[in-house]
């Protein structure tokens, strides 16, 4: 009786499953290239920021990416926490123009022009476009996403970013490219609206590091890891101390427990 029920149940289950399978189209898994793993100083229990690299990364971002991408969650003052000197930060901020707000006559615009003032350390890093529509208009309809959380907002973020930036190739023959698109096997769908942003010697590093595409991709990614998780270094340092404490503390608690229970037997 038990067996019969089992068999009947199993057959109905199979029936249900198979009729279902016929009606659902089997979608080909999107074949996206798998990003190779790079070494990041931020990896592991003792991960830290390489300040020199962050400075180089900021240089790549500000000289190349910043013409299209914002990092809208960052303030200029954050760059000082990143490792730039206060004077440098002041200078960088002052190069930007921020809305000065209403003047004493209550005007925000003068002859249709926004009234601006030089940026200060407490300002947010100014975005290249005033809004998404302007950004799309300037990029053939595509939206360059904000980069402040990029390494957290993609699976395997850092490696993906590096692979994406170094992964531009000619499209394989037979691959149908849409207009204004670039072939990149790491991007879902393999076509990306962003043209290859990096080329050798695209920037000139002050510290003499050779600006290869690979180097710049690593540096700008390191910068973006910092931008996404500025607390990372503090977090891991604190974590190591907390773990050391907890391991000793728990060992003690275990000893206490053994001691207490020893009386029982």
């Amino acid at each position: 009786m038990f067996k019969k029920i089992l068999i009947v149940a199993f057959v109905t289950m199979l029936g249900a499953g198979i009729t279902g399978i016929k009606s659902s189209p089997v979608q080909a898994a999107g074949d996206v290239a798998h990003p190779a793993s790079q070494e990041w100083t931020t990896d592991g229990l003792f991960g830290f920021f390489d300040r020199k690299q962050l400075k180089r990364g900021w240089q790549v971002y500000s000289e190349i990416c910043a013409s299209c991408h914002s990092v809208r969650l960052l303030f200029y003052r954050n760059l000082q926490e990143m490792g730039l000197a206060a004077e440098e930060v002041k200078k960088i901020a002052a190069e930007a123009e921020v809305a000065a707000g209403p003047n004493e006559d209550g005007e925000t615009h003068n002859d249709g022009e926004l009234i601006v003032r030089p940026g200060k350390a407490f300002d947010k890093i100014v975005s290249p476009y005033p809004n998404d529509l302007a950004a799309r208009a300037a990029n053939a309809g595509a939206l360059p996403p904000d980069l402040s959380l990029m390494t957290k907002a993609r699976v395997n973020g850092a490696n993906y970013l590096h692979a994406l930036l170094t992964g531009y190739k000619d499209a394989p023959s037979g691959f149908k490219m849409s207009e204004d698109m670039n072939y990149n096997p790491y991007f879902p769908g393999s076509q990306i609206a962003m043209g290859e942003p990096l080329s050798d010697e695209g920037v000139e590093y002050a510290d003499g590091t050779k600006a290869t595409v690979d180097q710049m991709a690593k540096d700008v990614t390191a910068f973006l890891i910092w931008a996404a998780e500025p607390e990372l270094e503090d977090r891991k340092r604190m974590g190591v101390k907390v773990m050391l404490f907890l391991i000793i503390f728990t060992a003690l608690l275990y000893a206490v427990k053994r001691q207490v229970w020893a009386k029982l037997h």
């Binding site: 773990m243 907890l246 391991i247 728990t250 608690l253 275990y254 206490v256 427990k257 229970w261």
Partner: peptide, 13 residues
């Protein structure tokens, strides 16, 4: 209490 405290330590880790 002793056993729960020890378990709590492991859990915190």
């Amino acid at each position: 209490t002793a056993k729960d405290a020890y378990g709590f330590g492991v859990f915190l880790i």
